[in-house]
Amino acid sequence: MSEPLFGGCDIGSTTGKAVLVRDNSVIASVIVPCLPRPEKTAELVINEAISQAGLSSVKDVTYLVGTGYGRVRIPFANEDISEITCHARGASWLRSSVRTAIDIGGQDCKVMGISDTGRVREFVMNDKCAAGTGRFFEAMCRVLHVSLEDISSLSLESKAPATITSQCSVFAESEVITLLNEGVDVADIAAGINFAIAARLVSLARKVGLVQDVTVTGGCAKNVGLIKCLEEKLKAAITLVPGDPQIVGALGAAILAREAFARA
């Protein structure tokens, strides 16, 4: 009999992620852009993960946990768990020394204080708007006519980061347009954007209390420029988890699936 297979499916606001775990190893991980309906995204991403793992059906997965905004709409999930718990568990599994995780998702951001046992000790979420989220970056990329990857690399080239004070993405967009009209270098604007987001995240992180090691999860963790700005603002080193930070929530879900199965 083959070893049991555990799955995590994280249906966020902009992407769907799936991770399959067997024998304490990740055997598949997939990220897809979200479709209009969460259940369709879930089917798409899990089928791709199943295919990547060389399996034939989601029925091959022994136990699967759903997470993310669309977690309750995942038809094949055995249970659903909040993304805060999943990100914390995923980060902790990848790097057991992590005590603070900052998750920058497409639609919100969260800071989690993590206990020695990998449990969430405390958390805080962003509030009223897109400030500090992937949506903010998307809006800025649209104005600058650059990709998300460009924001990261441009930011690192900046000599004099521009000041962007607006937390609101709509007002920040206006600020960026003004800066462009004033002839400010795009690299400096990109750095300004990263610093603006970093400032918002630092404010959240301080509410939870910053305990080392600090890591960043979610798609925006791939923005090296942002990580640098965050380190500068936090006055602390950020230790990224090994592998793709965007799948940490789905991975945590898979680990929690394994734990739930073991308890059953």
Partner: peptide, 8 residues
């Protein structure tokens, strides 16, 4: 909801 679920 996140609070109740996360803090178990």
């Amino acid at each position: 909801e996140q609070f109740f679920r996360t803090m178990k």
